[in-house]
């Protein structure tokens, strides 16, 4: 499964960003191998529609779930409509993915 994590950095040891829409990068982790890709978030500096832009990056990367410190109303609407699960996570990207796999993260709708 591919999981997209909002982050201010570029790897598994980078912190989870508090906000999906304004995160610098969306890090897409393959949970089978823990390999990852870094996608820059065009929403980071957008005037409006940041959450939608970030959600589009998550979807285009083929992720089935997204993790961030928080989600805005527009990104949640996009994820809910498209069937991508949104989870609140913290710590590093790696820790957040492990927590998701352990069933410890809260699902937001």
């Amino acid at each position: 499964m591919k999981v997209a994590v909002a982050s201010s950095g570029e790897g598994l040891n980078a912190p989870v960003d508090m906000r999906l829409g304004r995160c610098a990068n969306v890090i897409v982790v393959d949970t089978d191998t823990m390999e990852f890709e870094v996608h820059s978030n065009p929403g980071a500096l957008a005037g409006t529609g940041a959450g939608v832009a970030a959600a589009q990056v998550v979807a285009d990367a083929g992720a089935e779930a997204a993790i961030a410190g928080n989600f805005g109303i527009n990104s949640l609407r996009a994820f809910n409509s498209g069937g991508i699960a949104a989870y609140v996570g913290s710590g590093t990207v790696g820790q957040a993915v492990e927590a998701l796999l352990a069933g410890e993260l809260e699902l937001v709708e």
Partner: peptide, 16 residues
């Protein structure tokens, strides 16, 4: 970012 294609869904955001 007023329109998104998330998997099978096409979502519009009229406010944006």
């Amino acid at each position: 970012s007023a329109i998104a294609v998330i998997r099978d869904a096409v979502i519009t955001f009229p406010d944006l």
